[in-house]
Design a protein around this nucleic acid. Structure first.
Length: 800
DNA sequence: AAGGCATGCACTTTA
DNA sequence: AAAGTGCATGCCTTT
């Protein structure tokens, strides 16, 4: 910091020594004569500060990311009829609670079966895009759900589209959860996740989601030996810290009785692909162990909740290798699906009319097409996949076959904390408009045509799916663990042969849709695993471009006025933009990510006191074309491949249709009521709860900086400022996968116990299953109330 | 106290 | 006169 200041001063002094800083007249003369016309190409060297190795790694990670994208395609149900994807809806609070109390059911359904029933397509664009915007306050409920979910679940499952929002809202309001305002604000940042619409079970309205499914055919060979698994897991290194799970529940101990089920439910949702009922049932801990552990965690329901999360986290991690194997299995498709995916994505987006929505925010999530043509899978299976032929009207396109995933790295995605969508719950709108557009003109194949679906294709696909052996023995698990640990240590060396597939004991008749859904969840889990394995990789989900987040700025009135200049944050500008020798700065070509329009802007600085003010000039047209108003923000990226600068104007959804910028520029934080709209002021207001600085852009906090938290090329300052203020972000930084090896202890907050599950007490195999543990939570006589434990750092920031 | 930055405003340039 | 430019001021946050 001091050195930076000194450097700034030094720069100014250097400029002064060069005679640049002089009287105004002299300035103009200089400016007129020395105006530098620096083309984008000249800035390449300055822009890319990554080493070649880093760049290669980034590319490699991108490939891996796209592999995940590609894998997702394999998980798509081949259903020519379309309508594979729609939002899963938990239609009532009872549904939710029933699901949460899933263990009350005799036959615990794998939640993936909740998607078993397919429904007619519910076209996402533009309806889906409008849905978040209309959710308005209700979105706070979704955020609330995220707030109680595990990091992974909050990251991977968006419940904002659920009808259960109302239920959740009721749930939480009736629970008198304190500081829900701030909680929602906090959890807005949790909107960095992928949206995997779920099929709504046909009988979900009957609150009998468990009834129809029986697991008599469970593969009990896949049971978990808790002790063994715990021993296998390298949890002793403390990486699975209790603190890692902090912040997702109210810090106080007055946990509503429904909360633990909610936590569990959220967790289940995010792990339904991998955690089978038998897995859960096979986890047994002695009651004494549970009680002791709970006491060690402070006692009370909160401790139990904490403990449960620890257990769940362990279970989750325990199953990572399963996804890992899946992902490895998909490696053989490396190279085809990304482009296909992107192409389909583009196809659907452009063809779906989503592009016609101007610059209004569409959604926090990009609409990503997923293959629905079974022949695709056949082609993949036969390795006969080829670049698509010329565009054709035959191009597979179905609006219902979208999935909404964050565009990591595509501007929409970035960081460690994945995508940038944030605040969407506040107003329902998404500050990431037209993320799809970022893929425009960068697709390897403009359009894509698939062979007509054939029944044989489906057969091939199913054969492909079912041909994988189900290896789930204990021994195999051990081996998998070992492999996992090894692979985790070399996450980018992921091209391992893997012949194992997760077991599927379902009847073939049911397998198609079920398996597909499971596969989808597996993909989901894969990504989660992937991200947990190395958060840096989050930065790399860039189907085409390698967009590196540079900075962003919440636009002030003076930025969107007719002056045509935008003040840039000094630190970020100096960090990520070319160093300016002269205050005249440089001409900088900014390509609008959305429109691909290249704006010739000027990046310069003003001497200010003994420092500088950095400006982006000639922004008037850009601002006007994007309809940017105060409170909106811009995001600057650089394409790491080309070095080009990219700019994206992000409009903040506004509740009122007046579309007039709020008069007030200050955002007060005093109100305790939730904002009833999504205007910029509220956006900023909520952002302030996370940002200690008014100047720091909100979006940076939750999106890009998060992404950049994992980017080696981004300053730590941006990253660190966020996790400290935001429990989620903090968690994302803190909670790394155990095998990652990187000690996160430095992120452990002093107050939070760095507790491993097994460190709570000597774990013994016992007689309590998780469901019984759940019951324990509600048993008043379990443990004594904690003595004002150390969990004050949970979400204390958001308490006011 | 130091620094960032939003913006007012003086000044210059242009229409 | 309007638009553009650049600096200075002062508020606000951070250190």
């Amino acid at each position: 910091m001091d050195s930076e200041s000194a450097q700034n001063v030094g720069e100014v002094e250097r400029a002064e020594a060069n005679g640049i800083i002089e009287g105004q007249d002299a300035n103009r003369n200089i400016e007129g004569g020395v105006k530098v016309k620096m083309e984008a190409g000249e800035m390449d060297g300055e822009l890319n500060d990554e080493s070649p190795e880093e760049c290669n790694e980034m590319i490699a990670m991108n490939s891996e990311d796209t592999d995940f994208l590609g894998k997702a395609e394999d998980l798509i149900p081949p259903s020519p009829g379309g309508a594979e994807w729609t939002d899963y809806e938990c239609t009532s609070a009872d549904d939710m609670l029933d699901a949460a109390r899933i263990f009350d059911c005799v036959n615990l359904p794998n939640l993936s079966e909740l998607q078993y029933n397919l429904e007619p397509p519910a076209p996402l664009p533009p309806a889906a895009a409008a849905a978040p915007a209309s959710s308005s306050l209700g979105s706070s409920t979704s955020s609330s759900s995220a707030s109680v979910s595990s990091p992974s679940s909050s990251s991977w499952l968006n419940t904002s589209n659920m009808k259960s929002e109302e239920a959740m809202e009721r749930h939480y309001h009736s629970s008198s959860t304190p500081s829900i305002d701030q909680d929602s604000a906090t959890s807005t940042s949790y909107q960095n996740f992928m949206v995997i619409p779920f099929e709504q079970p046909a009988d979900s309205h009957n609150n009998n989601i468990c009834k129809e499914y029986s697991y008599s055919d469970l593969d009990h060979a896949d049971k978990i030996d808790v002790l063994e698994e715990l021993q296998n897991l390298d949890l002793l290194d403390g990486s699975l810290s209790a603190g890692a799970l902090d912040g997702f529940v109210p810090a106080d101990n007055n946990i509503p009785s429904e909360e633990l089920p909610m936590v569990f439910f959220e967790w289940l949702k995010s792990n339904k692909d991998s955690i089978s009922p038998e897995d859960l049932r096979s986890i047994k801990l002695k009651r004494s162990t549970i009680e002791l552990a709970a006491k060690q965690l402070g006692g009370g329901k909160k401790a139990m909740l904490h403990l449960l999360k620890l257990i769940l986290a362990w279970v989750q991690n325990n199953h990572l290798q399963r996804k890992r194997k899946l992902s490895q299995q998909h490696q053989k498709f490396n190279g085809c699906r990304p482009s296909y995916f992107v192409d389909q994505y583009n196809q659907c987006y452009n063809g779906g009319g989503v592009m016609d929505h101007g610059f209004e925010p569409q959604s926090c999530y990009a609409q990503v097409a997923i293959p629905t043509d079974p022949s695709m899978f056949a082609a993949l299976n036969n390795n006969t996949f080829n670049p698509p032929p010329a565009p054709s009207m035959d191009t597979i396109h179905h609006p219902a076959k979208y999935r909404r995933v964050p565009l990591e790295g595509c501007g929409g995605f970035t960081s460690s904390h994945e995508c940038q969508p944030m605040f969407q719950p506040l107003d329902g709108g998404a500050p990431w408009p037209n993320m799809n557009c970022m893929l425009q003109n960068q697709l390897p194949y403009e359009n894509y045509r698939f062979p007509p679906p054939t029944s044989q294709s489906q057969v091939d696909y199913m054969n492909y799916r079912s041909s994988t052996p189900a290896v789930s023995t204990k021994e195999a698990r051990k081996n998998r663990m070992a492999r996992q640990r090894r692979s985790m240590a070399h996450h980018h060396h992921h091209h391992h042969q893997n012949r194992h597939w997760s077991a599927s004991t379902s009847p073939l008749s049911r397998q198609s849709s079920e398996q597909v859904n499971i596969n989808l969840m597996q993909y989901q889990q894969q990504r989660q695993t992937y991200l947990q394995t190395d958060r840096r990789q989050i930065n790399g989900w860039k189907p085409e471009k390698n967009l590196k987040f540079l900075l962003q700025k919440v636009l002030k009135q003076s930025d969107v006025g007719n002056l045509g200049r935008i003040v840039l944050p000094k630190k970020e500008a100096e960090t990520h933009l070319p160093e300016l020798e002269a205050r005249d700065g440089i001409s900088i070509a900014m390509e609008d990510i959305v429109t691909s329009h290249v704006w010739n802007m000027r990046y310069r600085f003003w001497p200010n006191n003994k420092s500088r003010m950095y400006l982006l000039e000639n922004t008037g047209d850009f601002v006007r074309s994007n309809g940017l108003q105060e409170g909106d923000f811009i995001v600057l990226y650089s394409d790491t491949k080309t070095g080009k600068y990219m700019i994206r104007g992000v409009k903040v959804p506004r509740s009122d249709t007046s579309a007039s910028a709020p008069a007030a520029t200050k955002c007060t934080n005093g109100s305790s009521s939730l904002p009833d709209g999504g205007d910029a002021k509220q956006f900023l207001k909520m952002g302030k709860s996370y940002l200690a600085s008014t100047s720091q852009s909100v979006a940076v906090t939750f999106a890009d900086s998060v992404a950049d938290a994992s980017s080696s090329s981004v300053s730590d300052a941006t990253v660190h400022s966020c996790p400290e203020a935001d429990p989620f972000l903090r968690d994302m930084v803190t909670h790394s996968f155990p095998t990652k090896g990187t000690s996160n202890s430095q992120h452990d907050h002093p107050g939070s116990a760095s507790t491993n599950l097994e460190s709570l007490s000597s774990l013994e195999s016992g007689d309590l299953t998780i469901e019984e543990i759940l019951d324990l939570v509600d048993s008043p006589d379990l443990v004594a109330e904690p003595a004002k434990s150390d969990s004050s750092d949970d979400i204390a920031e958001s308490k006011d």
